[in-house]
Amino acid sequence: MKAQDAALMTPDQLVDELVKLKKEQFNLRFQRATGQLENTARFRQVRRSIARINTVLNAKRREAANA
Rank of each mutant, 00 (worst) to 15 (best):
K20M: 07
L18G: 10
Q25P: 01
V19A: 14
A51S: 12
L8G: 14
D12T: 07
R61K: 13
M9E: 11
A41V: 09
R61P: 00
L14P: 09
G35H: 10
R61M: 06
A3D: 08
Q4L: 10
A41R: 14
Q36P: 01
S49D: 14
K60P: 04
K2T: 15
T55A: 09
A41E: 15
V15K: 15
V19S: 11
L28P: 03
R42Q: 14
K2Y: 08
K20E: 07
E17Q: 13
V56E: 12
T34D: 14
A65Y: 03
V46L: 02
Q31S: 13
F43W: 08
S49G: 10
Q25I: 01
R48H: 13
M9D: 05
L18P: 06
A3T: 15
N39C: 04
N58W: 04
L37I: 05
A59L: 09
V46G: 02
K60C: 06
E63G: 01
L21G: 05
R29H: 11
P11Y: 06
N66E: 14
L57V: 03
T55I: 02
L14T: 12
F30G: 13
L28H: 06
A3G: 01
I53A: 03
N39L: 03
M9Q: 14
S49P: 00
T40C: 02
E63C: 00
L37C: 02
T40D: 13
A7K: 14
I53T: 08
T34K: 10
T55H: 10
R61E: 10
N54S: 07
Q25Y: 11
R44K: 15
R48W: 08
K22A: 05
K20W: 03
T40W: 07
L28E: 06
V19G: 05
Q45T: 15
Q36C: 01
E38W: 02
E24W: 00
L14R: 04
N58P: 00
G35V: 07
N39A: 10
L18R: 15
T40Q: 11
G35R: 08
K23Q: 12
G35K: 08
Q31Y: 10
K2P: 02
F43K: 09
R48N: 15
T40M: 05
K20S: 07
L18A: 05
I53D: 04
D16T: 04
N39P: 02
K23E: 13
K20P: 00
R44Q: 13
Q4D: 14
N58F: 06
V15N: 10
G35F: 09
L18W: 09
K2L: 07
V46F: 03
N58D: 13
A3H: 08
A33W: 05
R52L: 06
T10A: 12
